[in-house]
Design a protein around this nucleic acid. Structure first.
Lengths: 249, 249
DNA sequence: CTGAATCCTTTAAGATACTG
DNA sequence: CAGTATCTTAAAGGATTCAG
């Protein structure tokens, strides 16, 4: 398991089935299409009536009914019936609904932080090499590892800003992802690590390094491949949203 | 995450659609039936091979394949192909998978904390009364509010240790939940608040209070209705798991 | 105004059998 | 050993219509 030992272990583990079941119940609500929309809307604009909310979110009545029923039953939203004429119903955020949004905000911050740090995908280095490279990159970068480039998924490649791989891997079974890596049609830059110089840098977003590779050499190579010199020291300045927009263009 | 409302408002709000979408993606994974099982299993017992994991969890191969594919594509699990003979495949927790479990643990702690504090359900007090009662109870109790007892859901009643309601509400439209409240067949105790004494305490888990109700009077009444004198000062001692077992018997 | 009732489509999950 | 292929079921989301 790839946990860096230097950080003191908070190591809260989900040991019991009951705990995991609790998490699944909470996550199930957050995963529903309209739950968070309703919660944030209620938090921002105080109480809402049914049709107000319906118009605001652009959701069909059945779905909103289902959603609000679940949220009130789980104590995240308060439903108040006002009997004055004309009678109406108000929905407002409950204390637990507020608390849940704080947790949701942590989740967003977590993914945001990973998006903000450039991601380096280390492909199939032998274990000692892998550990060495990962250690060098662990500050300032999000590091992912993949055993064989043949099994690389499109999603992983999309998350990567730089792919770091041993050259011999690039000679094996061809895949379309591999082709895209070599012809430079991916957003990610490529660092080839080879045992002997082979002049493989086939496009301007590819760099070749020959073993033995030094730490500064690797970091420098990675840095040149990031968009306009954005590196770990500048990673903090670009928000998660900025990077998301960058990547989805 | 211990969110105490009296601390200055961290008030992280989920303002953008992108943030809510991120949360939904993460929550969707946690809500899946086997994701957390796989993650905790990998965390506890190092790397696993496919069939090992399959036997351990008692899951069909298709479902495990789907689950592992999603977890590796999202970078939570590392998949390593060992080509020595006999060749085999290993799955292990990735750094992000470890981080996600920390968040999951916070979610479990959050629901656990709510379970650990006795829950008082305040039914349909007029707004000023409601605020007054809720304020008195806010330390040491989880407080929920419901506007009309007629709309009380079974789930809410099950979460409640004590139901605090105005007596006139109990005379209106009958529901089965209301019957259960009055005949004492619910786990929850009942505090009736009336304007004039009416001798309504029909069972030993019901208490009648006459306005004006004093803070100490209310807190004392609530305390007598909790199982064997467990109150807010003892709430910390009983773990979330203990209370869950209590309630599900 | 606030939903309930109906119908349709998609997807997770499980069971079962089969393959490189 | 490590999956894939097929089929079935159940629940969620959505559109539309109807009702208290």
């Amino acid at each position: 398991m790839a946990i860096d030992p230097e950080s003191g272990p908070p190591l809260s583990t989900l040991t019991t089935d009951a705990e995991r079941e609790d998490v699944r119940e909470v996550a199930d609500i957050l995963a529903r299409k309209w739950s968070l929309e309703v919660l944030t809307q209620l938090q921002q604009d105080g109480p809402y009536r049914f049709n107000e909310l319906k118009r605001q979110l652009g959701v069909t009545p059945k779905v909103l009914t289902d959603c609000l029923r679940e949220l009130t039953e789980t104590g995240l939203v308060e439903r108040t019936v006002h009997s004055e004429s004309p009678p109406h119903v108000e929905y407002d955020l409950a204390e637990r609904g507020y608390e849940l949004q704080q947790i949701a905000a942590e989740m967003a911050a977590w993914t945001g932080a990973a998006d903000a740090a450039p991601t380096v995908l280390v492909v199939d280095a032998a274990v000692p090499t892998n550990v060495r490279f990962s250690g060098w990159l662990s500050e300032g970068y999000t590091v992912e590892r993949v055993s064989e480039i043949a099994h690389l998924s499109g999603e992983q490649l999309e998350r990567a800003d730089v792919v770091l791989c041993h050259h011999h891997q690039l000679l094996d079974d061809r895949t379309d992802l591999l082709d895209r890596l070599e012809d430079g049609s991916t957003a990610a830059g490529v660092v080839h690590v080879t045992d002997h110089r082979q002049s493989l840098a086939t496009h301007d977003r590819a760099v070749e390094l020959v073993e033995p590779v030094l730490k500064d050499e690797l970091l420098q190579a990675v840095r040149t491949l990031l968009p306009d010199g954005a590196g770990p020291e500048r990673a903090e300045s670009s928000s998660a949203t900025d990077r998301r927009e960058e990547r989805s263009r």
